[in-house]
Design a protein around this nucleic acid. Structure first.
Length: 187
DNA sequence: CTGTTGATCTGCT
DNA sequence: GCAGATCAACAGT
């Protein structure tokens, strides 16, 4: 499977979020290969987006959002959860990232079950903190290059028709709820 | 330094 | 439907 090139992420954050649907998130841990199809994403931009971590400017936590595209931005929240983003923006923006919210399990399902301590497939990776737990993604993956075939990367996947994509308001935020930047694949 | 809030999930009611 | 887990950023003292 072909890895998505850097240029894929060097476009408008909102377009990248929509185009990531159907792509395959791949994690390699030793002998294990774990992967899942991306079925829900959210775009977080910059000064035009009050809900974005980068809205208030550069900090130690969000600094990779201001750097090279195609890089993993992992952050810790609510005292116990990690969430994973991919840095993506066009040249008009200094910062931006796409939050990976949900997958459809593909390979390494037994590994996910062990990580998540549940055997319900439907409950394995259907949330942003669930997929990081299932794939053992933590701050160690902060700054990882997703365009290299290493321990964490994203490849081509299935083709998704525009008519199968739903755009909603983003989940769990109180600001900028007018922006329909949550994207998911219709069932 | 202190208090509050948050791009969440789970388990209990 | 709600409490609890409990860290990082930020605003306020």
């Amino acid at each position: 499977m072909t890895i998505l090139p850097r240029s894929f992420y060097a476009r408008d954050t909102v377009d990248v979020a929509r185009d990531l649907l159907g792509k395959l998130l791949v994690r390699r841990i030793g002998q294990h290969l774990i992967s899942g199809t991306i079925v829900e994403t959210e775009a977080y931009r910059y000064r035009d987006d009050q809900a974005s971590h980068s809205f208030a400017g550069l900090t130690d936590r969000n600094k990779v959002m201001f750097g090279q595209v195609g890089i993993a931005y992992v952050y810790f929240t609510y005292g116990m959860h990690y969430c994973m983003n991919v840095v993506a923006k066009d040249t008009n923006f200094e910062a931006g990232a796409v939050l990976l919210r949900a997958l459809e399990p593909k390979q390494g399902i037994d590994f996910m079950i062990r990580q998540r301590k549940t055997d319900q497939i439907s409950n394995l990776v259907n949330g942003p903190a669930k997929l990081t737990q299932a794939m053992q993604i933590t701050k160690k993956q902060y700054g990882d290059d997703l365009t290299k075939r290493s321990s964490l990367f994203i490849t081509e996947g299935i083709k998704v028709q525009y008519s199968d994509i739903i755009a909603r308001s983003r989940i769990g935020i109180k600001k900028a709820t007018d922006k329909l930047w949550n994207f998911s694949i219709k069932n």
